[in-house]
Simulated assay, not measured.
Amino acid sequence: MNTPAPHPELPGPDRTHRPDLEQTAGGLAHLCGNLPEVREALEATGDTAALQRLLDAVRGAGGAGDGLAGLVDAVHEAVQVAGDPWGLYGYASGLRGIHPAGVEGLEYVHRCPLELCAGRAEEDVRETPARCSLSGRPLSREPLD
């Protein structure tokens, strides 16, 4: 199977830490895990253009003309206009719940096959096998370091 090259704008294993890119990756991860709900909210407003441009870019049909971050920003803003004040980025804080003090369990994460987003936590995966809602490709399940 051909493994696509990671997107040059987003953080990967060999890229420098940049908070703005992590925000983009977190927004994409939220979108991947909640695409049906986001699509429904945008359809209710009659404006799915920003979402479609982003999906086309991720799926390789439209390129990322103004940059992937700009496309994610546009969807984030459209979701806010649709009535969700958190948009895409507000859900990408990394807070996953409360754990008892001193107890650590083995956690798994589902990584983006295109290295575009931050992936999804085990508890955020609703289907088996886990798939990227944006590209349709399978997510890889890995233990979290």
Rank of each mutant, 00 (worst) to 15 (best):
P13Q: 08
P6N: 07
A5Y: 06
G27K: 05
A49C: 06
N34P: 07
P19R: 07
D20P: 03
D124V: 01
A78M: 08
V79E: 01
V103N: 09
H99F: 13
S93M: 05
L71I: 05
A82F: 09
L10G: 00
A74Y: 11
L114F: 07
G102Y: 08
A50D: 07
G87S: 04
E37I: 07
A64T: 10
H99S: 15
A41S: 14
V125K: 05
H110Q: 02
R53A: 11
A74H: 12
E77Q: 12
S93N: 10
E122Q: 11
L71T: 00
L28Y: 06
A61M: 02
I98M: 14
G97M: 03
S93K: 06
R15Y: 13
P19V: 05
R18P: 10
C32T: 00
S133I: 00
E122T: 04
G97D: 08
G12Q: 04
C32R: 01
G102R: 06
L51E: 02
T3A: 14
D145H: 08
D47I: 03
E22L: 11
T128W: 14
V38S: 09
P6D: 04
L95C: 10
A49T: 10
E77R: 11
E104Q: 13
E127I: 04
S93L: 07
A57K: 06
E142S: 13
V79I: 05
A50K: 06
V75I: 08
E77Y: 03
E104K: 13
L54K: 04
G67T: 03
G90N: 06
H76F: 02
V81H: 09
A82L: 09
R18E: 15
L88Q: 00
L88M: 06
R131D: 02
R126N: 09
W86V: 02
P100V: 03
V75T: 02
D84A: 11
V79C: 03
C117G: 08
R53Y: 04
Y91E: 03
L71G: 04
C112R: 01
P13C: 06
R96E: 14
R96Q: 14
E142M: 14
E123C: 12
V109Y: 03
G60E: 02
E9S: 15
V38C: 14
D66S: 11
H99A: 15
H17Y: 15
R18T: 14
A44T: 06
E123L: 12
D73G: 04
L21P: 02
S140N: 08
H76E: 06
D84L: 07
G102V: 09
A41G: 10
A101G: 09
R39W: 10
G70R: 05
A29M: 03
R131C: 09
L21H: 12
M1S: 13
H7I: 01
P129D: 09
E115H: 05
A61I: 00
P11L: 06
A41Q: 12
C132Y: 01
R59K: 15
L144H: 15
A5K: 12
V109F: 10
H17D: 15
P6I: 00
Y89W: 15
D14I: 00
V103W: 11
